[in-house]
């Protein structure tokens, strides 16, 4: 069966199955298990209403449990076994990882990414949000800076491969160097700094995200606070840094953490641009180099990523609980 037909069939079965499940389960609950008639009608309605939320939740909880909760446990369990998966070796995979210089490079680079990308993207996003706020063509400018959000990491990498190309007839950077009489160089092979050239691709993608959210936050600031500051003689910079930024600090933190989480997941850019060569490996791409080869190692790397994400996860959950109160 062709995949297209299979896809159509899956949509029909998937959507039909969902509708059918919800409809049928509600009917069974109300008519068969706890019928709203007879001597216990009132009690039955209450019972049915206690059960119903779980009917609504069940498919989502099942999928979430299977596809996101189970893997956390499953990955950790698998990381305690050797390559073939039949020999329990405890934490040996982790010990081997930490002994390997490639892993330490990946961790170091990953920390660089986590420090630089969210900071730069948030800063640029805030800058653009503020600058375009009262601009006549601000919305067009924002839309264009937001555009890379729609482009895949692979597509973005290719776009920047052109920019970074060592050939002065293809790469605009080397073309500028060429016209200044400098020798062409490959930005992706300059030790240490090549990481920053890769990071900039993600900054290029994520600035639009930061801009959209921070721009909305800036608009939400009460005008009176700004007017009062101006009447007190504050200059535009003071208004921005001492009046506006403190009021949107919460949003800045949300943007920052969201991008941090993303940074820990993206392997596409390194994979496409350098394949991890020239000391540009980061954990997600390092993990992929073990995928299909050594599941024990691969899951161990994945679990290290999970541990790095954990502080943000806990912070997010606490924020969410605070809001609900």
């Amino acid at each position: 069966m062709s995949p297209v037909l299979q896809g159509l069939l899956t949509i029909i079965i998937g959507v039909g199955g969902c509708v059918g499940y919800f409809y049928a389960s509600n009917i069974i609950l109300d008519k068969v298990i706890f019928p709203a008639k007879g001597p216990q009608a009132g009690q039955n309605i209450n019972r049915a209403n206690r059960v119903r939320p779980w009917l609504f939740l069940f498919p989502a909880m099942f999928a979430l449990g299977l596809y996101l909760v189970y893997p956390v446990v499953g990955s950790f369990y698998r990381s305690l076994f050797n390559r073939a998966g039949d020999d329990f070796i405890g934490l040996a995979n982790y010990a081997n990882l930490f002994a390997e210089s490639a892993f330490r490079t990946a961790v170091f680079n990953n920390l660089l990414w986590v420090l630089v990308v969210p900071a730069m993207a948030t800063f640029l996003g805030l800058l653009v949000a503020q600058l375009t706020d009262r601009l006549a063509w601000g919305n067009i400018a924002k839309s264009l800076i937001f555009m890379p959000m729609a482009i895949s990491f692979v597509g973005a990498s290719l776009i920047w491969k052109f920019v970074y190309s060592a050939n002065p007839d293809i790469g605009i950077i080397n073309s500028i160097r060429d016209s200044m009489g400098l020798d062409p160089l490959d930005p992706l092979q300059i030790p240490f700094w090549n990481n920053f050239f890769l990071m900039f691709i993600l900054v290029w993608i994520q600035t639009g995200f930061a801009m959209v959210i921070l721009s909305a936050a800036l608009r939400g600031i009460p005008e009176e606070t700004i007017e009062a500051a101006i009447i007190d003689g504050a200059n535009p910079l003071q208004v921005f840094f001492q009046i506006k930024v403190p009021q949107i600090m919460g949003t800045i933190v949300v943007v920052w953490t969201t991008i941090t989480i993303l940074v820990l997941k993206v392997f596409d850019i390194v994979y496409t641009m350098t394949g991890g060569n020239f000391d540009t490996e980061i954990l997600p791409s390092y993990m992929m180099s073990f995928m299909f080869r050594d599941d024990g190692r691969a899951t161990a790397v994945a679990f290290v990523i999970m541990v790095m994400v954990l502080p943000v996860m806990i912070w997010n959950i606490r924020q969410a609980r605070k809001e609900m109160r």
Binding site: L57, S75, K265, D295, M306
Partner: peptide, 23 residues
Amino acid sequence: RGVLIAAVVGLLVVPLQLALVPL
């Protein structure tokens, strides 16, 4: 209900890398 909402917020950030091998 509160616990489930918190769980969803937590699951938002679980790295996909974890899911690959077990799934």
